[in-house]
Structures are given as C-alpha cells and as structure tokens.
C-alpha cells in the first residue's frame, strides 16, 4: 500500500495493513500516534519525560500486539490508545513515581519576546504543578478535555464512565485548578481582583 497521502487513511485501516505485514503502515502509525501518547503521558505524569517515553513505547507495543485481533468499527484507535496510556500512567502514579516541576522542559515556541516566553513558561509550569495536585481522575478528565481537546463522550469511553460523570470530574478539576492558582495571579499575569 502506498502512503503518499497517508493523512487521509484512517488509523484503523493502517492498523489492519500493519497486521497484514505492511511495514510502511507501521511507520505512519508510529509517526502519527507516538506524539499523542507521549504528550498525554507527559501531562498525566507531571512532565517526567523519561517515564512518559516509557509509557508511550509500551502503549505503542500493545497496539502492535493488538493489531491482529483488531476489529474495525468497535473503537477508534486513538480512543484505545488514550485508554491504554491512562492505565499505564495511573499504574505509575500509584507506585509514587512523580517528578519535580524543575524537570519540565522549556517549551520550544516560535520567537515571542523574552517577556512573553517567560510568562508562557510560568503559566505552563503553574498549570502542570496544579494539575499534579489534582486527584488522578480529575486530572485525567481535565487533560483529556482541555489539553487533548476530546469530546465528553470520547472521554467517557476512555475512562469507562458516563458522560455526566465526566462533566462532574472536569468541573471539579477546573475548580481545583482555579483555587490552587489564585495565589499565583500576579506571577501568571492575571493582575489583582
């Protein structure tokens, strides 16, 4: 199969092609899905890059193994991947592997002014720190909704709960973030009341 226009080919079709021995399909899937797995794992693990890379690799390995028994139409590959990454991150968080905020790498942005870059860095670190203090399920719902941009039904499927529960977790998570970050208003450039 030629993948010159691989952006048009659904992940599910690529996975079936891989299971039939198509190495090029694996390459496209790896380039497309590894960043998603890594980004989500980083946010769930508070920015621990080494742990997040381990999680992303393990999630992708499980995807390759799953390919033979993948049934098209049952679930989206990305939904399945988010679920696996969620479980792997939860396992690591239960084991108490966390990371200091100082380990979070600086963002690689375009070329904003130094002041803007410092503000963005401060905001990113503050958000990451506040997210790390949320209960795992609230963090998961907030990250999937507001950072990964998934819909509530998709999040419900990933987390194995109802849409109402997702909305509740997201709302509580956002309230928790808002309260935690109140003390850092000046630092984050939000001024005073």
């Amino acid at each position: 199969m030629a993948f010159d226009a691989s952006g048009d080919i659904p992940n599910e079709a690529l996975l079936v092609a891989f299971s039939n021995g198509d190495g090029e399909a694996a390459r496209v899937l790896a380039l497309r899905l590894t960043p998603i797995a890594l980004g989500y794992a980083l946010r769930m693990l508070g920015g621990d890059r080494a742990e997040a890379e381990d999680v992303a690799q393990e999630a992708m390995l499980r995807l390759w193994r799953q390919s033979r028994s993948w049934r098209q139409g049952e679930a989206k590959v990305t939904t399945w991947l988010y679920r696996v990454v969620s479980n792997l991150c939860t396992d690591r968080l239960r084991r108490g592997r966390t990371v200091g905020i100082d380990q979070i790498p600086d963002p690689v942005d375009g070329a904003p002014s130094m002041e803007t870059r410092l503000m963005q860095l401060a905001r990113k670190r503050a958000l990451s720190s506040a997210l790390a203090n949320l209960p795992t399920r609230q963090r998961q719902a907030v990250v999937l909704r507001h950072l990964e941009g998934l819909s509530n039904p998709e999040i419900a499927e990933i987390m194995g709960i109802g849409v109402d529960a997702v909305e509740s977790l997201t709302a509580r998570g956002k309230r928790g973030l808002a309260t935690q970050l109140a003390a850092r208003r000046d630092e984050l450039g939000y001024g005073d009341d």
Partner: peptide, 28 residues
C-alpha cells in the same frame, strides 16, 4: 485571592496546548 475565572483558565490551557512535545528520534 479570587480563584481564576474560566477565561483565565482557558488561557492557561491554550498556552499548554501550543507546546505539544515532540518524541525524540530515539523513541520513534
């Protein structure tokens, strides 16, 4: 201090969304 409102939170989320980390070549 007053908790952050939705708009302020959203600007934080937007800043985080802009910087999706790229996997290293070693990971790929």
């Amino acid at each position: 201090r007053r908790p952050l409102d939705d708009e302020e939170l959203e600007s934080l989320f937007a800043a985080a969304r802009q910087s999706r980390p790229l996997p290293s070549s070693g990971l790929i």
